[in-house]
Nucleic acid binder design. Structure first.
Lengths: 130, 130
DNA sequence: CAGTATCCAGCGCGATACTG
DNA sequence: CAGTATCGCGCTGGATACTG
């Protein structure tokens, strides 16, 4: 980290903030990370309440930043799959400490998390951070 | 983390995003952390380009979230000092991995960081993340 | 010095309808 | 299915001037 000081420079962050500050970006990164590969419509379902425009915009953004990849299959009906790039995986991991911090701070109880998760990311049999 | 799954739930993040997504919030957290205690006008100088309104708004926000504290001295001219709370310190630490990730990703060279930092956070003798 | 008061521009984001 | 096209609102944050 720092050699002769305990100061931390946040200048790298100036660039990243734009990525992580978007309302859905981190959620999307994480969902894709959880699923490995996922289609547009499935993302829509997981992200309760997102509009197609917003999702499309965000995905495009994340692609430009090389955080996710896109593979389209020439079928009818069309199929497209999204996945994390190496960088995307890295981001996902780097976010975990903030998650832990936030969870701890909220006194995030199992109940709370479950109820929240039910309507968003973690519905179904598999849950985490409970 | 997760017990029987490698999935990561981001639901705690839904609440935190509001904090970390503000353009200046993280920078402010970090500067205060670096300095220990700092005054309004000095923050203005460190945060190159921020307007007094924006700074005041952000500080108020961070106080409400208990991330920073404020101490006012009844002097003339008035003096006010800001400092990190325990929670603020925690956030600062939790952000470091993202920093590392971002720095690495940018191929953040010593030169780059120095030049960027000169006009913002890390001016002067002490630098970090170079 | 440490803010407040105004005013205003830009963009993120949602809702809805439509298309290859 | 996987988006695009439109429209519009609210909030963030910048510029500037003023105050206890």
């Amino acid at each position: 980290m720092c050699e002769d000081t305990n100061e931390i420079c946040l200048c790298p962050l100036e660039g990243v903030i734009d990525s992580i500050s978007k309302k859905w970006a981190l959620l999307i990164i994480n969902i894709i990370g959880n699923k490995g590969r996922i289609r547009f419509s499935d993302l829509m379902k997981e992200l309760n309440g997102i509009s197609p425009k917003t999702l499309a915009d965000t995905l495009k953004n994340l692609q430009e930043q090389q955080l996710i990849g896109r593979e389209a299959f020439s079928e009818i009906p069309p199929r497209v799959e999204y996945y994390l790039t190496k960088d995307g995986e890295g981001l996902r991991e780097a976010v975990i400490p903030i998650l832990k911090w936030a969870a701890k701070r909220d006194n995030h109880t199992k109940e709370k998390c479950v109820s929240v998760c039910k309507r968003t990311t973690c519905s179904g049999k598999k849950r985490s951070w409970s």
